[in-house]
């Protein structure tokens, strides 16, 4: 048994209902979904939710502790941290979408081609992916930023490139598994051409796996991008990016600990949400995991 026998997109409505029920009965997954949905709503309606302009400075209210007027306190320029965290969620989601988008698009293409083509193409492509993979995400992201220069845009690209080998390898091994299933041979024996095999058979069968990988990959991307911003290699001031806010806060830790705690908690909760959601999605898409609860 594997992912493919339990389909979500391909199943009937009754089966989809069953999967949905299974998902809803997993409390962690539901919590993850709630966190992620909340985050999306907050990001979409940031101007309506945030009480202040995130960049509005005020000399008279520097380093204010959390209060009714400033729920999360203020920073060294008197900016409202609550509003900054709310606007920061937009950046976090943007980073996640772009970095994961790059990694997924490139990784999927490489994995699909490497796995389907076989022979020399496979060996060369996958060996290169292995080499990149062995360097770990942090180093690749650093190298990419070293080349491109520090900026939020470059950090997103760097994280996308750095996490791509992971997607490529999973896609590749999923293609190999699919290629070994009888239906693949049956399709070739029926006389199908490359396009039909690739797009009508292989792609629909590997997509659920890649959805799981991408959901879990969002967490990695957010952490990696925040790390780059923390080091000063990503978002630049006065951006309300959480990693950068955290880094700025450390100089004031003794006087204003909330400056560092607030963005850190925001990152941790967001990452936790995506991790919980990813685990939940994996559980309903992969029957081998379902019997563990």
């Amino acid at each position: 048994m594997s992912l493919q026998t339990a389909s979500v997109t391909g199943g009937t409505s009754s089966e989809t209902m069953l999967k949905l029920k299974q998902f809803m009965s997993n409390r962690g997954a539901v919590l993850g979904l709630v966190i992620v949905m909340t985050l999306i709503v907050v990001a979409l309606f940031a101007p309506m939710i945030a009480p202040y302009d995130p960049q509005m400075m005020g000399a008279g209210r520097r380093l204010q502790p959390p209060s009714f007027a400033y729920p999360f306190g203020t920073d060294e320029f008197g900016r409202d941290l609550y509003s900054r965290v709310i606007y920061g969620s937009r950046l976090t989601l943007l980073i996640a979408a772009i970095a994961v988008g790059i990694a997924l698009a490139v990784g999927l293409t490489i994995g699909l081609i490497g796995g389907y083509a076989g022979g020399w193409t496979e060996r060369v492509v996958m060996r290169l992916v292995d080499v990149v993979f062995s360097f770990t995400e942090t180093l690749i992201a650093l190298a990419a930023v070293a080349i491109l220069g520090p900026s939020l845009k470059n950090a997103m690209i760097a994280v996308g490139i750095a996490t791509m080998p992971f997607y490529a390898r999973i896609c590749y091994s999923t293609v190999l598994v699919e290629k070994n299933k009888p239906y693949f041979e049956a399709t070739v024996a029926a006389g199908a051409g490359h396009a039909r095999i690739l797009f009508l058979h292989l792609l629909p069968n590997i997509l659920p796996t890649m959805v799981v990988v991408a959901t879990l990959g969002v967490s990695t991307a957010i952490l990696a991008a925040a790390g780059l911003s923390f080091l000063g290699l990503g978002a630049q001031p006065p951006s309300p990016e959480w990693g950068w806010m955290l880094s700025a806060g450390r100089d004031y830790f003794s006087r204003a600990p909330w400056m560092m705690i607030v963005p850190g908690v925001a990152i941790a909760i967001t990452v936790l949400g995506f991790n919980l959601l990813g685990d939940g999605v994996r559980e309903i898409l992969d029957p081998r995991q379902t019997n563990r609860r």
């Binding site: 955290l246 705690i261 850190g264 990152i267 941790a268 909760i269 936790l272 685990d279």
Partner: peptide, 14 residues
């Protein structure tokens, strides 16, 4: 899971 979700530079600073 909480350990995995925390940014380690943040944990370090705390």
């Amino acid at each position: 899971l909480i350990g995995v979700s925390m940014p380690h530079f943040w944990l370090g600073l705390i």
